[in-house]
Structure formats: C-alpha cells, structure tokens
Design a protein around this nucleic acid. Sequence first.
RNA 1: CGCGGGGUAGAGCAGUGGUAGCUCGUCAGGCUCAUAACCUGAAGGUCAUCCGUUCGAAUCGGAUCCCCGCAACCA
Length: 479
Amino acid sequence: MTKFYLTTTLPYVNAAPHIGHALEFFQADAIIRFYRKQLGVENVFFNVGTDEHGLKIYEKALAENQTPKEYADFYAAKWQEFCKLFNINYDNFYRTTDPAHYKAAQAFWKACDAKGDIYKKKYEGLYCVGCEEFKTEKDLVDGKCPLHNTVPIQYSEENYFFKLSKYKEELLDIYAKNKDKLKPSSKYDELINFIKNIEDISISRLKKNLPWGIPVPGDDAQVMYVWFDALTNYANAVGYSTDEEKFKQWWPVTQIFGPDNLRFQCAIWQGMLLSAGLEPSKKFLCHGTILGPDGRKMSKTIGNVVSPFDQLEKFGYEAVRFYMLSELPTYGDAAYLEPDLKASFNSKLADNFGNLLNRVIHLANKKEASINNADLVEPEFKKEVENRKSKIENLYTDFDIKLACDEIFQLAEYGNKYIQDNAPWSEKDSDKVQKVLNNLSYLISTVIDLYEPIIPTSCENARNALKNNETIILFKKFE
RNA sequence: CGCGGGGUAGAGCAGUGGUAGCUCGUCAGGCUCAUAACCUGAAGGUCAUCCGUUCGAAUCGGAUCCCCGCAACCA
C-alpha cells in the first residue's frame, strides 16, 4: 500500500502564530485530509511541531525570568491550541525538547560522523544571534548584520562542521533528474544557484556560551546548532534510529514550507540526509507569503498585520481557511483582503454550493422525491460528474489546491445550471423530477467529498443534511 | 551591475509557443424551487514598454521602466 507522509516546518517558538503559519498549516491539513480519503487514514502521516532550541530562545527565556524549557512549554502549548482552534488534524506533534528527540538527533549526528562528514575547525567569526548564523565581513553593512541591523558577536570557537560541500554534485544531480521535486518550478533556479555556491556549515556551539541545545555525542563541551537538531525531526518523527520498520514504511517525506526555508529544507537538510545514508525528501512545496491588505509585507510598524486569531473570531475558521486555500494562489505571494474573503465565501459557498444543497432538498421534500440513490443516477450525468471529479482529484494530487477549489466551484455551478435547465419545480412528470433531483443529490455528495479537505466541518453538516433531507442554511452570508 | 519575486479586463488571480481565461463587480434579460439566491447574454484587456527568435509569443531571448521582499515579529 502506498504511504504518504507530510510535514510542515517546525515553527520556532519565540512568537505567537501568525497568519502565514495559518496558511502553511491549512495547506498541509487540506492535503493530508485529501490523502486520508484516497489512501485511508492508516496510510497517511501528518507531522507538525515546534523548534525549541537555540540562542534566541535561551535569551528570551532569561529575559522573562524563565527556564528555556518553561518558555518552550508555554509556546508549544500555544501552538497546540492554535492547531485545535483551526482544526489542524495532525498525527504527531513533534517537540525538539522531547528526550526522544535528543537521542534521535544524536543518532543522526553519529551517522554523519561515521561517514566522515563531521570535522572540528577553529572558527573566528562574527555571529548574528538573529540569524543564528556566522557572518563574514562582506555580509555586513557598517559592521552590522543587514538582516537584523545588529552588531554580531565576536566568537572565537572551535566548532564542528558538516561537509555539506561534499554533497554539492550529488544534490545538483538529484535536482537535475527530478525537476518536479520542487513546487513551484519558479524557485528551481534560485535553489540551484544556492547549491552551486554551497559551503560547509558549522553545526555546533560551545556549551558554555549556549547551554540550551542538544549535547554533541562524545563532546560535553559542545551542543548542536539548532538548525541541525531541528531538521532531523522529519526523519525522527517516523522512527529514524528507533524503529526501522516504521521508518521504512513512511520515508521519504513530503515537505511544505515558506520561501525563507528553501535553502534549509532543499539543500542543507538534503545534504544531511545523503550523509546519513537516507533517501532525499520526496517532494517540496514552497508556498508564498501573505502580504498585508496594502500588498506589502506585514509589519507592525506599518500596522498592516493580520492576526489569525482576530480573523478566526471575526469569520470563523472555515471562512478564513476557505479564503486562504481557494482564493489566494497556492504558491505565490498574495495580499490578505477581508472584502475578498467575504465575497468569495458569500458567492462560492453560500450562493453557489449552500444554496444548491438547500434548493435540492427543499424540492425533494416538496415533490416527495426520493434522492441519494447512487445506482439510479443517469449514466450520462454520472459520467460528467465523474470526469470532473477525477480532474479535481488530479489537481489535489499535484498539490494545486486553489485550482482544485476552482474546479469544485465549477462543479457546483454545473449543478445550478442543470437544475435551472431541467426546472423540476414546474415539471409534471414525477419520474423526471425524481431523476433530476436524484442526479443532483449525487452531484452534491461529490462536491461535499471534494470540499471536505478544505472545509471539513461544513461538509459533515452538509452530508448529514443531505442524508436526512433536512433543509439547512449551511453557510450564513457575511454582511 | 548584491539577491529574489512580480507587472494579464474595475478588483483578485489562472494561463511556460497555436484563435486571451476564471471568480467578484457592472449592465440587460429570464426564472421563481432556494440563503434578494439561480440561469442566459453583454460591456470591459494592443497580456508594462521596446527590440529580437519563430510560420506563430502573455508564454522563449535581450534591453528599458515600474512595484514588492531581503531591519524587527516571521512562512
């Protein structure tokens, strides 16, 4: 049986979830719900979690008079709450402070080390805490990190390095042979460019400077660089180093992440996998950035930040989710516009889909027609619905969520056209009425199935209403 | 020449070589089962500009102009 394993990136626990996270989680959750339907729940695995080490967290925790662990616990709980509020139905919530993660990350380290890919090097450099990264003089502008506008800390350390450069050719080869590994293809050149200039990376820090990390195996003076330990989670989550059978079943992973993660997920992490002797990730989905209503990047200074919690309160999780999945481009940047959210909800869900459901049930009750009999659906009608359905399923399979939504909308619209053309309300022949309404009930149940990954709660309500011939207002329109 | 994304109907977007599409909005008509919903038709674009490749370009190449991201929160 085919297995499907999907993971989001693990958000760094130094801030509350924002609308961009919501996008990533929505997309992942929609994809996973689709695959659960296709393959069965036992054949899909959905991993999310939190990244909880590193200097930034250490410093923030100290500033708030907490231990780093307390600080991380607080935020991890917040993220779990976030998932609950937005109905993100994960199979596993991974925390990098989990003791099991320590072991697995160390096992991963040892595997790379055994391959001869980890070496010690004295490093004198400027470290930017914001980036969690060493900088060279030419990275700096006026002695400051251009990304964070801060003066980097002068470090002189002997650290462990990972021979990432060793895998340059192999990585290039992998991508040359699998150009569709990364979606969207527009990111491909950027990635190749990065890999061509790839260098070995520092993967540890001195423990006396940074106690908040996973100990390097066999060297108590050092802890792993946060990125190194965090990335291994994708493998560890499905049993790397602890349950080989399980791991074999699920690996390789499909990953979804934002544009800033491209190099980490597609280059560095893939190099680590090669070193550890594991298969590279199966597929990468790189979503876009949600911009403020003014079309610019969200910023507190400008004041164009959209909060997922505010949106939830205002519109409910499904309207927000529907808007972000069906209206915004799946892979491009897009502005978050509340008027568009309302308009798309009103027209596509309430007027188109909800209203169709309502009028069909109304008519069926009024005309005493029995519906929901899939065997009696007219072949030609059935064929039309099935054709559209398989087209939509293909779009889902290719992770083109927005395009799939467009087609589902068209299918419901087809139902509205059909009922209009056949006008069962003025039809005298009760057999004909019966047929038309039964056909429509079949179409509606197909729409319900196809929309379910996007708006699960409403689809369940719709299914119940259809089954019990209850007329309901499925979607209440926004003012 | 720092890196990258983008400029397609009033708005938001699809569309990577073959007669310009979708949703919303607007206008006109129809229907009346339904959440003032539904259906039909129409108006509206020289696909940023220029040059080139091609039988043929929104789509490929070059140049130019403009917008956006690459400081903090952060996908």
